[in-house]
Amino acid sequence: MRADTAAGALPLSGRRRKAGPRVRLMPQLTGWGFVGPATLVIVGLSIFPAVWALILSLRDDNLLAPGTFVGLQNYRDLLDDPDLMAATGHTLLYSVLFVPGSLLIGLPIALALNRPLRFRAFYRTCLFVPYVVSAAATGILANFVLDPQFGIVNDLLAGLGVARQGFLQDPSQALLTLVVVSLWGSVGLPIVVYLAALQDIPRELIEAARVDGAGPLRVFRAVTLPQLRPATVFLVIWQTIDALQLFDLVYTTTKGQPLDSTTVIVFYLYQQAFKLFHAGYGAAVAYALFVVTLLVSGLALWYARRGEAAA
């Protein structure tokens, strides 16, 4: 009887082995059935505009009447456009001030918030809230706070005996003011990223360095900073892309003024494409900025890997 039972069980186990892959595949197919339509929509909304913009950059088109194919002429015109060069200079200056500034401000705050403090969670939340708020709302708030006549900042300066400042309405101060406003609104991201990276550092490494006689400064330089390298690389790339694509803050505060002192590349692209109806030229500017962003990101990754190899 036992022999017959064992013999009869063999085909059943064989059938189970054959049905196994299909049974394991069903949850995956079910999952793709749910996310597939949304994935197609998202990918379609990303790929179609990119391809259409590439075709548009090769045409003299105003989005209203049928355009003509001009090849690479729009890209050649980029090199001879003084307004674009000025906007590029403003963008580079903004990036040079914003990217290192956000990291240099975010890291010390993250180090402080990584210590056992009372109400630490409350402080973290307060510092991250400005990052959650949209840049458009930040810009509208900055207009009120920094108004030369009625802004609270100028009222405080007047109380201290300092002359009122133009801030966003002064050509010599407008871009620097945008950097400060951007830092206030964006420093929450470096703080959170650095906090997560600090909490992932093995305590054994820090304790071993202290046992070897290293002081706090030495521990920070020899242990903490190398462990923060991946987070720093991520933040440099992310903040650089964010700086190169600056638009909404400019649009809600200065609209490129005064005297075009805050006209950055993306705002200049917007003016060309949607105000002057030079859509083909605007698309060429967009693709040139895309290539520059890829090059900067690739250079940052290459430099980081080179540093890791050297270490």
Rank of each mutant, 00 (worst) to 15 (best):
L111T: 05
R164G: 09
F69K: 05
T240Q: 05
G166C: 15
L25R: 09
F34I: 03
I55E: 14
S102V: 09
L29R: 11
L246F: 06
F277M: 07
L40E: 07
R218F: 04
G106L: 03
Y268H: 14
V99P: 00
D260W: 12
L45P: 01
I191Q: 03
Q149Y: 13
D212L: 12
W52Q: 14
P100A: 04
D83E: 14
P49C: 07
Y303F: 14
R124I: 13
G159T: 06
A288R: 01
Y131A: 07
H278C: 09
G213P: 07
E204T: 12
L12H: 08
P82R: 05
P258H: 07
S261H: 05
A7P: 04
L160W: 12
V266R: 03
V219L: 02
A136I: 08
D77G: 07
L64M: 09
Q199M: 06
A87T: 08
L117K: 02
A284D: 11
M1F: 10
G188A: 05
A53M: 12
R15N: 05
S46A: 14
Q173M: 13
I241R: 00
T91K: 03
Y281P: 07
R120G: 13
A197V: 01
F119G: 03
A279I: 11
V192K: 01
A121M: 09
H278T: 02
P171M: 06
T240G: 06
A9I: 13
A209G: 05
R115W: 03
Q272P: 02
F122W: 15
R17C: 01
L198C: 00
G67H: 11
L269K: 03
L175R: 00
F144N: 12
L269M: 15
F167L: 06
L64G: 07
A310F: 06
G215H: 08
G213I: 07
R305V: 00
G106N: 00
N143R: 13
A309V: 10
R164W: 11
T224C: 08
S95M: 11
V233M: 12
D4T: 14
G188R: 04
Y281S: 13
R2L: 15
D212A: 10
P21S: 03
R16Q: 10
P21N: 04
V43Y: 14
L195S: 03
A273F: 03
A286W: 01
A142Y: 06
P66V: 08
Q245T: 15
V23S: 09
W52V: 09
A243W: 00
L104K: 02
L111F: 06
D4I: 14
G14E: 14
F167Q: 02
F247N: 04
V291T: 11
T177D: 10
V99N: 00
Q239P: 02
L178G: 00
T232M: 12
V133E: 06
L160H: 05
V291L: 15
P130M: 01
